[in-house]
């Protein structure tokens, strides 16, 4: 007969301990986002008492550190952020969707693995490298056409390249989730590949494709370093594709190092605005994804 020793902590007590400590870690991990948003908000709150807040819209210029005649206009930078994001999406979204379609519907034994690998690697290239390439290669090229080269065009090319993998991967995933039987049924009834793609696949995956584009959009708005290196960083509403500009993210990166008092507070407010733009996009994407999984 075996003697079952019981010289150990009761397993249920160890389990309880583990459950509690892992629960604690989980609480900590889940609260990080609250801390991040909370601290940014707290640091930006003084802005409401220090200045007339409407001035961030009504002021035309941005001279927050000027002791006599400070101005706080954020509009040029907000416009800069939106314009560069829009221009980047304008070419990267259709291109990304096309590539995903190629991977799913027009695969080639030679190209498809290369394209997949490229997408994966491209997603991992740091923004600083994209920015550096833009600064050293792209900007001089654009400067040949029209000086100074650091421009909306350079910004949207670099930014578009950065969000391209996101759009490709998400769209591909959406298209891939189509049941195989659908394609077989279509083929069996004599529906061609293009007709299937156009009338069945794309409409069915609308949600998933859109969420890829939204994800790219969110990433583009938040991107800092790459844009900073190719945008020229002049606070103005760009009049053409060849004009330099500044975005709200690059503004934070450029000025936080020396900003004090109201200037600093306003930079935090900018970060709060940035969060306020990204969070609803996330919500939209979530709903798109659930719609897709239910549809």
């Amino acid at each position: 007969m075996i003697l079952w020793s019981s010289n150990r902590l009761s397993p249920s007590r160890t389990d309880m301990l583990l459950r509690r400590s892992l629960g604690l870690l989980t609480c900590l991990a889940a609260s990080v986002v609250v801390f991040v948003i909370g601290f940014v908000l707290v640091e930006s709150l003084p802005a409401f008492s220090e200045i007339e807040l409407s001035r961030i819209i009504s002021d035309d210029t941005w001279h927050p550190a000027d002791p006599d005649n400070a101005t706080f206009g954020l509009i040029p930078m907000l416009v800069g952020s939106f314009l560069v994001t829009f221009c980047a999406l304008l070419w990267a979204a259709p291109l990304g969707i096309s590539i995903a379609i190629a991977n799913e519907f027009y695969p080639s034994r030679f190209m498809s693995p290369i394209v997949r690998r490229t997408t994966e690697i491209m997603a991992g290239i740091p923004s600083i490298v994209f920015g550096f390439w833009g600064l050293t290669t792209l900007v001089p090229l654009i400067a040949n056409i029209q000086a100074p080269g650091q421009s909306l065009l350079a910004g949207s090319i670099v930014l578009g390249m950065m969000i391209l993998p996101t759009i490709v991967l998400t769209t591909e995933q959406a298209l891939h989730s189509l049941p195989n039987e659908l394609a077989i049924a279509a083929a069996a009834t004599g529906v061609g590949r293009f007709a299937f793609l156009w009338h069945v696949a794309l409409p069915t995956c609308r949600g998933g494709i859109l969420s890829g584009v939204v994800l790219g959009l969110a990433r583009a708005i938040g991107e800092t370093m790459a844009v900073l290196m190719v945008s020229g960083n002049i606070v103005q509403i760009p009049g053409s594709l060849f004009d330099p500009f500044r975005t709200i993210t690059t503004n934070i990166a450029l000025e936080m190092g020396y900003a004090t008092q109201t200037h600093r507070t306003l930079l935090f407010l900018t970060a709060a605005i940035l969060i306020a733009m990204v969070v609803p996009l996330m919500a939209v994407m979530q709903s798109l994804n659930t719609e897709q999984s239910h549809g």
Binding site: I2, W4, S5
Partner: peptide, 13 residues
């Protein structure tokens, strides 16, 4: 081992 048996016993069993 989870039920607290010594190593030598474990292998025998």
């Amino acid at each position: 081992s989870e039920h607290g048996l010594p190593r030598s016993e474990q292998q025998k069993l």
